[in-house]
Design a binder for these strands. Structure first.
Lengths: 229, 229
DNA sequence: TGTAAACTGCAAACAGCGTTCGCGGTTTTG
DNA sequence: CAAAACCGCGAACGCTGTTTGCAGTTTACA
């Protein structure tokens, strides 16, 4: 009976998520690598070669340990991705606190988010996975709500707006990364007259001005400022 | 030499992509299943159980064939996903042709796109992969450019706008699918006062009016209407 | 203080994945 | 009629996330 060895990392009884789980047990030998070291190594791998390079074996190998040993610290690869996301979201701190209208402040935060997504190009994809919010993600949400305090709108509308802004920021991050990537080369455009005409035109410069700012401002006013509530 | 058997599906010499490749060879026996049947089976699997359910073995199994046999028709799983995307994008036809301002028409198309993304919830993810545009995708682009013809803006700006609208549509599709999914349950909100206050408030109704329409309209005017070019 | 429980790390294994390869049988071409 | 091209198959390869039994180490409790 009870021959099954128990793994504290799998302990669902006291908090199912990675955020409520002790980083190490209280009884055994000290782990050779901390949770932070593991997450840092995984982030480094993702920064270098993308999310797909973050395999359990690769992360373990980068730390000089066996793949299975990671499961003493995490209960799944998803846990690792959640930790990676939250670690990077932490780079948004400290949050803007004073100066300017709420729109200006929100825009500043969005800019920092854009820079973050460009620093870690895998982040949007990792966030797109339905993820359990960690402390830094919660803090970010909290900061957003604080900035939106002067706005007269319902909570649901504010959440919608935050999600939408985050989404648009990741769209910008993606489009910048793939600006010239979408290739229509080697395609017969005969059947697509407007597409053909567009390419026949001399290549126009990308839209002038700060597209990012204009887009987000119009989005925010559209979502919140004109809200009838 | 030349003992290596050649696979016409891999023929990179005459068109590297799936779009320029003959559906079947001209010499051997007739394939038991057509390319359309394969793609249809894959779409059915994705509709039922998500993109991850579309494994070569599963698709082959659904058609009563061996996994390796699929490589007579496709050169990779990515090819299959490209075909799936283009097949579904084809459901957008016919494109709006008359009636209303360009904004109204564009919005109508966006609505159809939203419905499409909800019919096939895996589509945004499949499109997010950098994909080689197929005929239906090209036709969709062409239709967008046609609708934007009255707009005085550069080609680059128009492409940006199309990409952004497509992205926002997929954001809406995703947020609708995960409306109540984001759970802050079992989280100690003590450290996040604004988040706690937001949840203490009586749950406000989701933002009134047509959020989709308002968002896209403000996005379009922000991106295109006010363009100095 | 001694013993039992808890914890760590490892090597090996499992099932599933995308993909490749060689084979026998079928169809078309010259 | 022979040769080339093509189809489908089953077995394999290397990779993935994850599980499991084992040996060694540390802590807690009687």
């Amino acid at each position: 009976m009870s021959g099954a060895p128990r793994n504290p990392a799998d302990d669902d009884s006291a908090g199912r998520s990675i955020w409520t789980r002790p980083q190490r047990g209280a009884r055994g030998p000290a782990p050779t690598r901390s949770r932070d070291e593991i997450v840092a190594a995984a982030v480094a791998l993702a920064d270098a070669d993308g999310l797909s390079a973050v395999s359990m074996r690769a992360v373990a190998g980068a730390l000089g340990m066996a793949a299975g040993s990671l499961y003493r610290h995490l209960s799944s690869r998803d846990d690792l991705l959640d930790l990676m996301v939250d670690r990077c979201v932490g780079e948004l701190r400290p949050y803007p606190a004073d100066g300017g209208s709420w729109q200006d402040q929100f825009l500043l935060l969005a800019r920092r988010q854009l820079a973050l997504y460009r620093r870690h190009r895998w982040l949007p994809d990792a966030i797109a996975r339905r993820t359990v919010p960690g402390p830094n993600t919660l803090a970010h949400f909290d900061a957003c709500l604080r900035l939106l305090q002067p706005v007269r709108a319902g909570v649901a509308a504010k959440f919608e707006a935050i999600a939408m802004v985050t989404g648009v920021v990741s769209l910008f991050a993606r489009s910048a990364a793939a600006a010239g990537t979408v290739t229509f080369d080697h395609v017969d455009l005969a059947a697509y007259p407007h597409l053909a005409a567009a390419f026949a035109e001399p290549p126009s410069a990308p839209p002038a001005g700060d597209l990012f700012e204009r887009t987000l401002r119009s989005l925010l006013t559209g979502l919140l400022a004109a809200d009838p509530a």
